[in-house]
Design a protein around this nucleic acid. Structure first.
Lengths: 171, 171
DNA sequence: GCTAGATAGTAGGGTGTCCGACTATATGAC
DNA sequence: GTCATATAGTCGGACACCCTACTATCTAGC
């Protein structure tokens, strides 16, 4: 919802403009909500692009990096597919997709579950562990250590979204 | 980056857990940044799912709805493809894709630009205008008027992300 | 004028997400 | 014990996004 209607050459904030138009059309009660949702969409786009740019040379995407880190932090460097999907809050098919590619790249390995033959265990391989560490080091210095916000503001963002997630029934 | 390592049955916040693990691994300086980025990813996922659910019965996705609203607010209910991509901050091919589907659904129409033969004007049709109004009405009441946050918090979220976007060179 | 470079739009390819459907396996009710 | 139900994972399809490459057209410098 980022649109501007003026023709001035000034660099307006498209979201603030959309918010103004919303109010003008009699939707003032929903203008802030629209602006908040649109802001989230754009912030996500910005953050993801930044992260993906750092990960690209390592040969993984953010989705696959998340799987690697989940395994990296797990006790035995291995987890069932279902648990991965649950933790990362994505659809089972998304896990299948990510693990397919990680396995093809030699970063993880599928293993049958010893007790439950329906289940598949994903195991982090050495190459995957090394990639996870290298990618994290670069991600930390290039993105996470210096977001686009002052330290206090970062905390504020985390707090607000934590409230949002809680109210949405996320945890 | 939403992963939990404990085995307690308590419903922990996965992002808070990831943040703790980050700090434990000597990455304390980047823990907040990681949590902020991960929070944005998840908030985006939640908000988008909510919006798409409302739009689905109207037969459009959020991406196409944004195009419709952009045209809806434009002076002559029509804009060049390039301008749409610029305002919505998406790649030109994404605009082609969205307009293809909107045109197939009879909601917009492509028209040659009178002066610049490279350019294509997208024009909002009556059906598109009606759909935009109906979808917006429902979106306003179902999502935007009642986000998952208290009114003051919504304002706070918008402010923080505005700062983020400005620092990222977004406007 | 005419050519080199910029701009508009599209096609093809890759990736991620979801949904619905399907197979295989496990579990619980009777 | 046996059968209905639930769960784990995968496949195919739809949609969004981006990138690279390509054509068509415009614009500016000489």
């Amino acid at each position: 919802m980022t649109f501007v209607s003026t023709n001035s050459g000034l660099p307006l904030d498209p979201i603030a403009e959309a918010r103004r138009l919303w109010a003008e059309h009699g939707w003032a009660h929903a203008a802030d909500g629209m602006a908040a949702v649109t802001s989230l969409m754009r912030a996500h786009q910005i953050a993801l692009a930044r992260v993906e740019a750092v990960l690209k040379p390592h040969g993984v995407t953010f989705a696959r990096y998340e799987v690697l880190m989940l395994l990296y932090f797990s006790r035995k460097s291995s987890l069932p597919m279902a648990l991965i999907g649950e933790r990362l809050q994505v659809h089972p098919t998304s896990v299948t997709n990510a693990v397919d590619r990680l396995e093809a790249a030699g970063l993880v390995r599928r293993t049958p579950h010893p007790a439950d033959r329906r289940s598949t265990i994903v195991e982090l391989l050495d190459a995957g562990r090394e990639l996870a560490e290298a990618a994290t080091a670069e991600l930390n210095t290039e993105v996470f250590a210096a977001p686009w916000l002052a330290p206090a503001t970062v905390g504020s963002l985390i707090e607000v979204i934590t409230e949002l997630r809680r109210n949405a029934g996320d945890f």
